[in-house]
């Protein structure tokens, strides 16, 4: 038996909004530790890694490890039926081929449930090697979304360059070029509004705008985003989900042939 009750169905909805552009379907791996998901996009350029800790749930019970393959468009339809203040309880029997979502309004005045068919997905897990990153940049998630959106108008790629002076986002296209430089801020009492750069070595890497834009769909999950860069290694874009876990995106760089 699997049962997980989350105080805010809106949080799960935000997680779903953050991954459904990249993934058509995905397997949710449920264990004592919580719910994990790892999946590549269709083009195998990026990898999504979601971790929701069991202790972030109001109630969590997982008698046996369970993998639930779900179509994310269908799952979105289910969550569109939940109210913004509803709690959600996810339930599945061992070896079941369906999962049930129950939405409860705060005062119990409305309770709805939706049963959804599960899918058998043959998804391979990738091993992610430990990396010593050259630069780790923390910045407000809204600022990152803004920069990616602005620069995407001009080119297909964004170069992220990090030195001890700051981080620079650049693009070029048919109509010209664009650059956004962010300096490290000293506003340390408001960490989620600060730009914090931890640089071991300068690094400059090129990434697809389209994917970066998809990742910024996670902006409503967290005020802050962390970018980890290292030469010849995928970029990591990480959003912490307060009290629940994290959502990480890995993006392969564009490299000179």
């Amino acid at each position: 038996m699997f049962e997980a009750r989350l105080a805010s169905s809106a949080t799960f909805k935000k997680v779903l909004d953050a991954i459904k552009d990249l993934l058509n379907e995905a397997s949710f791996d449920c264990s004592d530790a919580g719910i994990q998901l790892q999946a590549m996009d269709n083009s195998h350029v990026s990898l999504v890694s979601l971790n929701l800790k069991s202790d972030g749930f109001e109630k969590y019970r997982c008698d046996r490890n369970l993998t639930m393959g779900m179509n994310l468009a269908s799952l979105s339809k289910v969550f569109r039926c939940s109210g913004s203040d509803d709690t959600v309880t996810i339930k599945a029997q061992d070896d079941a081929d369906t999962v049930t979502f129950m939405f409860e309004a705060k005062k119990q005045e409305k309770i709805s449930d939706y049963e959804m068919k599960l899918m058998n997905l043959d998804q391979e897990h990738l091993g992610i090697p430990e990396t010593e990153f050259s630069c780790i940049i923390k910045l407000p998630s809204g600022e990152f979304a803004r920069i990616v959106r602005d620069l995407s108008q001009f080119g297909e790629s964004i170069v992220i360059s990090c030195t001890k002076e700051g981080v620079k986002f650049s693009t070029q296209g048919d109509i010209g070029t664009g650059n956004v430089k962010l300096a490290q801020t000293n506003n340390f009492d408001k960490e989620d509004q600060s730009v914090i750069i931890d640089m071991q070595e300068p690094v400059s890497l090129t990434f697809s705008c389209e994917y970066l834009n998809s990742f910024t769909k996670a902006t409503p999950l967290s005020n802050q985003v962390t970018l980890s860069l290292c030469d010849n290694v995928p970029l990591v874009v990480e959003y912490q989900i307060p009290d629940l876990g994290h959502l990480k995106y890995y993006l392969a760089p564009k490299i000179e042939e």
Binding site: V45, H125, L126, K254, E257
Partner: peptide, 14 residues
């Protein structure tokens, strides 16, 4: 000319 690498050229099936 830049070419988009695949994530599987960095991460291998575990």
């Amino acid at each position: 000319k830049l070419s988009q690498k695949s994530i599987t050229s960095f991460f291998k099936p575990s």
